[in-house]
């Protein structure tokens, strides 16, 4: 079964994967918002989502480390990884202390902050093109890019909020 979703928030995405697993659907693959599920025993797996630090170097090392720790790397897309563990093997949480949780949200925040800056750049290029040529197509592009930029801004803001919550609770 395939489902298309766009998530702002990896915690909500994780909750959704959890809900799917409890209904007997295990994530098998993720690509560009398309989630591929295969049947599993209801509640068989616990899922976690992570963002790697580096573009490549890390990937192999990270995957080997996780497999050694009894964690299955289900799908990797770009710097994003989907991990799971059988629920019968006990609780599964990637990050168990405040410091490493904050680090993770910082990685996600910086990732989308970079994307946001790129989008803002594109937005002004489109606006400029629209003003110069006065073709409606450029206005449509500008609006679409603007919407994406707002979505990214929201993610950055959410991460910041979570970091502050964690720091306050420390």
């Amino acid at each position: 079964m395939k489902k298309f979703r766009l998530y702002y928030d990896k915690d909500r995405e994780q909750d959704w994967l959890q809900k799917m697993s409890s209904e007997g659907w295990a994530l098998k693959k993720f690509f560009l918002g398309v989630y591929t599920f295969v049947p599993c025993k209801p509640g068989e797996y616990i899922y976690q989502i992570d963002l790697l630090e580096n573009w490549d170097g890390d990937k192999e090392d990270f995957a080997a480390f996780m497999e050694d720790s009894g964690v299955e790397v289900v799908s990797q897309w770009y710097r994003w990884v989907f991990l799971r563990k059988k629920a019968e093997d006990g609780p599964f949480e990637m990050y168990t202390d405040v410091e490493s949780k904050i680090n993770q949200y910082n990685r996600i925040k910086n990732f989308f902050l970079a994307a946001l800056i790129l989008e803002i750049g594109c937005f002004f290029i489109e606006i400029n093109a629209a003003l110069q040529t006065n073709r409606p197509l450029f206005w449509i592009f500008a609006i679409l890019i603007g919407i994406v930029a707002i979505a990214f801004l929201r993610i950055v803001w959410r991460c910041q909020w979570k970091i502050e919550q964690l720091q306050r609770g420390k």
């Binding site: 976690q48 992570d50 990270f62 480390f65 996780m66 720790s69 964690v71 609780p91 949480e93 990637m94 990050y95 168990t96 202390d97 490493s100 680090n103 993770q104």
Partner: peptide, 12 residues
């Protein structure tokens, strides 16, 4: 103290 694998990986 049960270390999460992500916490351990980062710490190492």
């Amino acid at each position: 103290v049960v270390l999460g694998p992500g916490t351990l990986y980062g710490a190492i």
